[in-house]
Design a protein around this nucleic acid. Structure first.
Lengths: 131, 131
DNA sequence: CCGAATCCACAACGATACTG
DNA sequence: CAGTATCGTTGTGGATTCGG
């Protein structure tokens, strides 16, 4: 699936539509900031500013932007308390939690191969520099 | 980890270094094309042009670029056969396979929530359009 | 406190053309 | 066939400012 799929089903135009939708979702979700936001949220409910502190290095703009996208896809829930000053909380929905598990898988993978990757990079960079 | 970590270890400067490295890896790997390439490769060995056919919509340039990055991180192995015309094959290394499993997790997640997400989007877009 | 909009530098991307 | 370089366009992301 997603790339070319194994065509286990019946129709074809139908699958390619699902495929292009899957691509869109990937575009929305498969980026550094979305991942970090999802990991930061975890099972907690956080305010905008708290979230901004957790995901460090993220700009105000990027945070809002990515949160909007996640919200649009139904992965985070946005709750506005009409107090003054305003107060907005974000929390992962159930599909969002599902994604978080996948993301956690990637995080675990990163941890596991950290050293391996680091040395692969050194080798590669050393090889490129040889001229 | 990756974002702020739970500080289960001893030192601190050490962890933040690992953390920033993890970030770098995320930047390299957490993007649409890298994911699609990894899924397309799977357990097979593919030539450049074959890979290009599998990951459809990808440009020549993007493919080389992402392959270089993956190679640099030791996730794909690049084998050049010095024939004429040249022939270059790509295959996932063991760490690459590990990443692929995580990516597959995301693909499975996508499939699972496809309909859910689609309707969440409709709701969101309908809400935004209300003015 | 949160979000939207503006401005702007610069990175990403696609198309093309050229090399081995 | 595979890779690199260049160019022009589009997009991304930060800083700032204004508004609720």
């Amino acid at each position: 699936m997603v790339t070319k799929q194994l065509a286990g089903s019946h129709d074809e135009a139908d699958l390619t539509r699902a495929d292009s939708l899957a691509r869109e979702i990937f575009s929305d979700v498969a980026n550094k900031w979305a991942f970090l936001i999802i990991e930061a949220l975890g099972e907690r409910t956080l305010r905008f500013s708290a979230l901004r502190n957790e995901v460090d290095g993220i700009s105000h703009k990027m945070l809002t932007q990515n949160l909007r996208i996640l919200e649009r896809n139904g992965l985070v829930e946005r709750t506005v308390y009409p107090t003054v000053p305003p107060r907005v909380e974000y929390t992962l929905t159930e599909p969002g939690q599902g994604l978080r598990e996948a993301v956690s898988g990637m995080c675990a993978w990163t941890q596991r191969y950290l050293a391996h990757i680091e040395s692969a990079r050194r080798d590669f960079d050393a090889g490129s520099a040889a001229m």
